[in-house]
């Protein structure tokens, strides 16, 4: 039961929505999968709710040259089913096991930090997505990692996702404590190969825990190593230390770090297996 009272509006444009949010110190309501539960428990008690459901411009998936523009109100189910969406991102959406949640949860809502690990955020990070934010009287575009780190005010209107090229190998891996539950940790890898050598790598990591936001690990593996599982394993241990992770009721920091290492290796294994299969 939601006992707090709040103002409510369902504007038609993102700009109007941003203006309402700014004026009332309100919160945007997208698919409601996080927010409605928080309203019911009292964890969120905003004075004003701005429903984004009627804003046409926040919908749709549109290929644009080397990238795809995905409206913020695109549901995970739509994302999972659309041809123009890079397969690794569609897989990430499909990895949310609950079909009812996939039918409601949106891309925009999935990029707000919630203290829980996210399936979608690592994939967007690894792919190098950029995020468009509409403010009351301005608009900004920023890399997904920056958006996730800062959660700027305004309405997230769309994300642009670069489509991986033929030299890229991409994979996601997740671990949930039971198969149908939200992940304890999720990772996504985009590895760019130069022949057999591994070039640049982007690794998106979401490991949950209080104040733990999905992050991008970019610096490593780039040094042009071979892509053998052993090398990858070694490198993972190098940069995934427990220091960056949280301990809470769901898991300890060192278990989270261990899972991230394991999942990164599994993602690389998947990429390697696909390259073998495709003769690449």
């Amino acid at each position: 039961m939601i006992t707090s009272s709040y103002g409510f509006a369902a504007p038609r444009t993102a700009r109007e929505a941003a203006a309402l949010l700014a004026r009332h110190g309100g919160m945007a309501l997208a698919g409601g999968q996080t927010l409605v539960a928080e309203l019911a428990t009292g964890e969120a008690a905003p004075p004003f709710l701005v429903d984004l459901g009627r804003i046409e411009s926040l919908r749709g998936i549109e290929p644009r040259g080397g990238s795809v523009r995905i409206g913020a109100m695109t549901t995970l189910a739509e994302l999972a089913a659309h041809r123009a969406v890079p397969p690794v991102l569609a897989t990430a959406a499909r990895n949310v096991p609950d079909p009812l949640v996939r039918n409601r949860a949106t891309v925009g809502g999935s990029l707000r930090p919630s203290g829980r690990a996210s399936d979608l955020a690592p994939a967007l990070l690894a792919l190098g997505a950029t995020v468009h934010v509409t403010g009351a009287d301005s608009a900004v575009t920023l890399p997904a990692e920056e958006y996730l780190a800062r959660s700027p005010a305004g309405v997230l209107s769309a994300v642009d996702v670069p489509v991986p090229g033929p030299a890229d190998g991409c994979a996601v891996a997740r671990f949930a404590d039971r198969p149908a539950r939200p992940p304890l940790c999720a990772v996504a890898v985009r590895a760019t190969f130069a022949g057999d050598r591994l070039g640049a790598c982007r690794i998106g990591v979401s490991a949950g825990g209080p104040a733990q936001r999905p992050t991008l690990l970019e610096r490593s593996l780039e040094r042009g190593g071979d892509a053998s599982p052993d090398t990858v394993r070694g490198r993972c241990a190098e940069f995934v230390s427990a220091a960056g992770f949280a301990t809470d009721g769901a898991a300890s920091a060192d278990y989270r770090a261990h899972l991230v290492r394991t999942l990164v290796v599994r993602a690389f294994d998947r990429i390697a297996a696909r390259r073998v299969r495709d003769g690449g």
Binding site: T41, P97, D177, R178, P179, A180, R181, G249, A250
Partner: peptide, 23 residues
């Protein structure tokens, strides 16, 4: 699970685990 102050640490089904069909 109870915290030292006697509060349930998993007060709702977001963190208290019950089986799903997949279990």
């Amino acid at each position: 699970r109870y915290g030292d102050d006697g509060r349930l640490l998993d007060p709702d089904l977001r963190s208290y685990r019950l089986p799903h069909a997949a279990d």
